[in-house]
Amino acid sequence: MNIFRVSADILHLLSILVLLLKIHATKSCAGISLKTQELYLAVFVTRYLDLFWNFHSLYNSVFKVVYIATSSMIIWYMKRHRGVKQTYDKDHDTFRYLFLIVPCAVLALIVNGRFSLFEILWTFSIYLEAVAILPQLVLLQRTKNVDNLTGNYVFLLGLYRAFYILNWIYRYATEPHYSAWIVWLSGLVQTGLYLDFFYYYLQAWKQSKKLQLPS
């Protein structure tokens, strides 16, 4: 375990908490894509299936449970909470999940480490995580005006990915047999998707004004 990896996990958790607190405090989920949240829950559930039989460390197990619980809470708020669900931007959040789920499932069946149910679900979760932010980015693009907390959420998620890349570089340099092409390539794609958003986020931050995406 290195400092990059720990920072990444904490940033990931922070991003989810920022979103959860925003929803809880403002009783509004305006600007948040339910599709992306549901895809993330699917990512966590398919990746952390081994929670029940593969114990690696308390650190890992606690994070797994917390990720599943907090993203379930976000979805619960958006779908079930009486006040919050009325603020959900259903008309703009129209991205089809099947466009992401089907290609990821097919790719996981073809390109995987070993042909077993657990391995294929795990690989599927790696591919799906790479693209799960797309409905959220499309929603931000459509609504243009991004409120601070939603902007911070996407920014923290991007930082989390960037720190995972640093972690891989560090591990590759220090651990003799460390190699994971599927994870690295997916991680690079995922981080790449944030770059455009990062550019506008940092510009808005430098000029200390509200984040506005171009048409």
Partner: peptide, 10 residues
Amino acid sequence: AAGEEVKDEL
């Protein structure tokens, strides 16, 4: 074994 190392990440 290579795959197992990766699964220690979240």
